[in-house]
Design a protein around this nucleic acid. Structure first.
Lengths: 174, 174
DNA sequence: TGCAATGTAAAACGAACGTTTTACATTGCT
DNA sequence: AGCAATGTAAAACGTTCGTTTTACATTGCA
C-alpha cells in the first residue's frame, strides 16, 4: 500500500471521527504509521492534507451517484451511510470548522457541492425525461437532510427521505 | 447588560462564525470585553461555555417554533435564516467538532434535538388532526436539509423545502 | 467605617500545537 | 561501486492553547 494512500485513509478516519481541528499531527503520524518528516513530504501541510482527503472522498462519493433514477440516488445514500456511518457531511463540517478561511479546504468543498448539485439535476432530468430545477433542489434538500438527520435519528431518516422523494417525483410526472 | 449575557452573546457569535475549536479564549475575552478571570468565574470552562451557548440558542430557536401548522414551521425557519445567517446547525457542528467526547456539549445537543423532534411531531399532529410519525420524520428531514443546503444554495433551499412539505401534507390530508 | 463581592490587568502555568531540522539507515538504479 | 531517493527516529522550533494566579481598584451594603 502506497504511503500517500495510507496517509489519506488514516487522515479521513481521524478527521471524520474526531474533527479536523481536534486531530493533532502526532495522532496522525501514529495512525498513518510514518514519521512526521515523511508525512509532510507527502501532505505539505495539515490544510492541504484535509483538501486531499476531501478530493478523495468526493471521488468515492460521486462514483456511487452514477445512477439513472432518483430512487437509486437514495438507495446509494443508504449504502453510503451503512458503510461510512452517520456523522454528517464532512465537506460542510470542514468548511464550518475553519470558518471558510482556509482556501484549500473552502475550494474543495465548493467544487464538491457544485458537482453534487449538477449530478442531482442530471439524475432528476434523466428520471423525469425533462429538466426540473425546483424538483432537483427539493431532492438535494432531502439528501442533505437525510445525511444530517441520520446523525441523531438513524437510518429511518434516510428511508423517510426516500419515500418523500418518491411522492414528489410521482407528482411531478403526472 | 449583565456580564453573563454579554459573554454568552459574544461566544455564540464567535463559535458560530469561526468554529468552537478555532476560537481561542483570548479572542473571546476581547470580544466579551472582560478579563479572563471574570470570564472563568462566569463560564467555568470553555466546554461549559459552549453548553450554555447551546442552551440559550435552543431557547431562542424553539420559541420561534411555537406554531400550529407545518407551513408556519418553514416560515419560522425562513425568518431564522434571515436573522442568523446560513452556517448550518450549530448543535450538530459542535457535536461533530468534539467527536461527541465532551459530555456537557453532547448532552446539550441531544436534549435540543429530542425537543426539536418532539415539537415537529406536535405541529404535524395539530396541522393534520392526527399523529403521523412518518410525515413528521419527513418534515424533520426537510428542515434539517434546508438548514444545511442553505449554506451553499442560499435561501432557495428553504423555499424548496417549504413547497415540498406542502405537497406531502396535502397528500397526507386526503 | 469596614468588609465582602465583583471587577480589571497582566503575568505565569505546563501542555500541546503545526512544522522543521538533524542525523542516520535502507533501498534501487546506472 | 556509488549516488540519489526515500524512509525512520527524535529533538527542537516558536507559538498558541485553556486555565490559574498575583496584585490591585471599585462598589454596595451592614
Amino acid at each position: 500500500m502506497d504511503m500517500t494512500t495510507k496517509l489519506i485513509a488514516a487522515a479521513e478516519q481521524l478527521f471524520d471521527r474526531h474533527g479536523y481541528m481536534a486531530t493533532g499531527m502526532d495522532r496522525l503520524t501514529e495512525a498513518a504509521g510514518m514519521s512526521s518528516r515523511t508525512l509532510y513530504k507527502h501532505a505539505g501541510s495539515k490544510a492541504q492534507l484535509m483538501a486531499r482527503v476531501l478530493t478523495e472522498r468526493d471521488r468515492r462519493f460521486m462514483a456511487r451517484l452514477e445512477v439513472r433514477t432518483v430512487d437509486a440516488l437514495f438507495a446509494a445514500l443508504e449504502d453510503w451511510v451503512w458503510v461510512e456511518g452517520t456523522r454528517g457531511c464532512l465537506f460542510l463540517r470542514s468548511r464550518a470548522e475553519t470558518g471558510g478561511d482556509t482556501p484549500e479546504i473552502a475550494e474543495a468543498v465548493a467544487s464538491h457541492k457544485a458537482a453534487f448539485h449538477r449530478r442531482i439535476e442530471e439524475v432528476v432530468a434523466a428520471d423525469l425525461g425533462r429538466e426540473d430545477p425546483v424538483l432537483a433542489e427539493q431532492v438535494l434538500v432531502l439528501i442533505e437532510g437525510a445525511t444530517h438527520a441520520a446523525v441523531y435519528r438513524g437510518a429511518d431518516a434516510v428511508s423517510a427521505a426516500r419515500a418523500a422523494a418518491a411522492i414528489l417525483i410521482e407528482r411531478a410526472r403526472t
